[in-house]
Simulated assay, not measured.
Amino acid sequence: MTTAAASSSETTTSGGTTTGVGPLLREWRDRRRISQLELALRAGSSARHISFIETGRSRPSQEMVLRLAAHLDVPVRERNALLIAAGYAPAFPETPLDDPSMAALRSAMERLLTGYEPFPALVLDGTYHVQAANRGLTMLLTGVDPALLEPPLNAMRITMHPGGLAPRIRNYREWRDHLLAQMERQLALLRSAPLRALYDEVSAYPLPPGGQESAALGDHAPLALPMILEHDDTVLSFLSTIATFNTPMDVTVSELAVETFLPADPETAEYLRESAS
């Protein structure tokens, strides 16, 4: 990770244009639909000063960049980009998950995943690579193309590839739309070339037979969109939840997510318990 400060208050974006911190902050303010006055009140500044920063007439301090980024809820990785654009060194490290300093975090996540068994759970990074998973999830991967299970495992590929879970997801069209929309929301916040490449790849996968059809979701409307999955001639139904870390101080930690699959009906819960025993 680069630790040296940029030599000027401008940075080059992926498109090749030079952009200072002011236009970047204005872009984030526009995304959040916050006026200069509202942002100034939140940050303990003035609308005039915010205007001067955005137009490049005033160079914000490092503390001001971080304060504005916090009030704009800018992702941690992008906060580093704002600091570099302003001519400062990144404030947040990006520590590999296998680094010794991450041992306590890895151990805690493993305990969490094990404690959730027999229900499926996994830990994902910012590009949906599987960093850890429990036996409940592993059981569901029976029949998946072995090539998709070669490291690094990617949850989006495993789910949407024709050789993955896609042919067994009964409501695949709805579930696919949900996953792609989730990725689109992330891409609206992050300038991530790997995530964009993954999105372009999985969105181009052909639909499996029957993938254009909507599955019947039962007599009652579900509380949330379930993933309805066929497994060993049994139909299982799951609700997905995602948990992230509060106030992360490391880029890697900020992009980790724990996804758990809660049985959406008693039959699914009983099947998983019986299979585990």
Rank of each mutant, 00 (worst) to 15 (best):
A4Y: 00
S8K: 00
S9N: 07
T13N: 06
G20K: 05
V21L: 10
V21E: 05
E27P: 01
W28H: 10
D30R: 12
Q36M: 11
Q36F: 05
L39A: 02
L41T: 05
R42D: 09
R42P: 01
I50S: 08
F52M: 10
G56W: 06
R57E: 13
V65T: 03
R67F: 04
L72Y: 11
L72K: 03
V76F: 02
R77Y: 09
N80R: 05
L82P: 04
L83T: 04
I84D: 00
G87M: 01
E94L: 08
D99A: 13
D99F: 03
A103G: 06
A103Q: 12
A103F: 00
A108P: 00
E110T: 10
L112E: 01
L112A: 04
Y128R: 09
Y128P: 11
R135Y: 03
G136I: 13
G143P: 07
L149E: 13
L149R: 11
L153V: 03
A155I: 09
M156P: 06
P162E: 12
A166K: 04
A166R: 07
P167S: 11
R168S: 12
W175P: 06
R176Q: 09
L180M: 11
A181I: 07
E184A: 15
E184I: 13
E184L: 15
E184F: 11
R185M: 15
A188N: 14
L190F: 14
S192R: 06
S192F: 04
L195P: 11
A204M: 12
P209K: 07
G211S: 12
Q212E: 15
A215M: 03
A215W: 12
A215V: 09
I228G: 02
I228V: 15
D232I: 00
F238H: 03
L239G: 00
A243E: 01
N246P: 01
P248K: 02
V253W: 02
V253K: 08
V258Q: 12
P266W: 09
P266F: 09
E267W: 13
E270C: 10
E270D: 15
L272M: 13
L272C: 07
E274M: 08
A276D: 10
